[in-house]
């Protein structure tokens, strides 16, 4: 097997300032290979978006500090200087955000926004960059790309904006694309098209894709690998088929049950009691224990570590495959 494109080891993030400073990510380990789709699943506060932004150090600053190691294409991302970091963003790693209506500049045409990345990184002149922007819009399935390149974001539908966002991400041929809830803001009949587009791009360009989502249906449709995050940690990592066949972490199991949305004999939906922890509510015990049907005193006293188990990893004292 070839060396991974991205290799994350012990990634820890501290976010916020003063008394509000929290550990939003704890010792996160995972690899991403070219041509592979890795889904990071979790609810709000799980740290999934923090992890995504940390890979490009987007949330770094007085309000955010990282430790651990992020290796991308041989580079040590966390120690890059600002110039090298800028070059990594866009050229090495690109990101597609959830709400394209907000993530695109309202005062610039789509074509110019895509072209700017090439002007900045590849020192292309605007003419050539705009021409290539139109090609990219064609590649992401935008109808009439030449005309649409001259439109402003508000003049497009939600699906078109997300296609434009993806074209923007592809502008400088990155090796890794991070898509943060790319279809959550879209209508269901459009979601499938955008997901199919992402899948075909990954295959055609032999890129790595990290898909951040809360939607297990999206994971099932697209992912090769699944990472489940809860309270800033990975609690289960598994190949997608095995994950859905037999989840090992009780949280994974509860999520899959909840996602199938069916009434039980009593006429109620399956639920997970309690609520997701706030970002940074990570103690020295299993964060899921208060909501977990299998929790024991051990779970409330100690933090289960993420241990390899066959083809997967899991952090649980009483996994579901233990009868």
């Amino acid at each position: 097997m070839s060396a991974p494109l991205l290799s994350v080891r012990g990634l820890t993030a501290e976010l916020g300032s003063g008394a509000q400073r929290v550990t939003a990510l704890r010792a996160v380990d995972f690899d991403v290979r070219r041509g592979e789709i890795t889904a990071i699943v979790g609810e709000s506060g799980s740290g999934k978006s923090t992890a995504a932004m940390a890979l490009a150090r987007l949330n770094e600053g007085p309000q955010g500090a990282f430790s651990g190691e992020v290796r991308f294409d041989g580079m040590d991302v966390l120690s890059l200087n600002s110039r090298a970091l800028r070059s990594l963003r866009g050229q090495g790693i690109a990101m597609v955000f959830q709400d394209a209506a907000a993530a695109l500049n309202p005062c610039e045409t789509i074509g110019d926004q895509i072209a700017e990345a090439m002007v900045v990184h590849k020192a292309r002149d605007w003419r050539a960059a705009r021409a290539h922007a139109i090609e990219l819009l064609g590649e992401v399935g935008m109808p009439e790309p030449a005309r649409r390149a001259g439109l402003y974001p508000h003049e497009m539908s939600g699906g078109q904006r997300q296609r434009a966002m993806i074209a923007l991400g592809l502008a400088c041929d990155p090796a890794l694309l991070i898509a943060d809830e790319p279809t959550t803001a879209l209508d269901v009949t459009v979601q499938g098209q955008i997901l199919a587009l992402l899948k075909s791009i990954v295959a055609r360009r032999d890129m790595g894709l990290i898909l951040i989502t809360h939607d297990l249906g999206v994971v099932a449709a697209l992912a090769d690998q699944v990472l489940v995050m809860y309270a800033g940690r990975i609690v289960e990592a598994a190949p997608v088929a095995e994950f859905f066949d037999a989840p090992h972490h009780p949280y994974s199991g509860d999520m899959i049950t909840a996602a199938s949305v069916a009434l039980d004999a009593g006429g109620r939906l399956a639920t997970i009691p309690g609520r997701p922890p706030h970002s940074g509510d990570v103690g020295e015990s299993c964060a899921y224990a208060p909501r977990c049907a299998r929790a024991s005193n051990q779970c409330r006293a100690a933090l289960p570590s993420l241990e390899p188990h066959g083809t997967r990893r899991r952090a649980c004292f009483h996994p579901l495959d233990d009868a």
Partner: peptide
């Protein structure tokens, strides 16, 4: 979000300020 997008494109700080924020 769109300024975050600009930074994620790798646009240098001064250019983000003058071209995106200022406009």
């Amino acid at each position: 979000d769109y300024i975050r997008t600009a930074r994620m494109k790798g646009v240098p700080g001064p250019r983000v300020f003058f071209r995106h924020i200022l406009r």
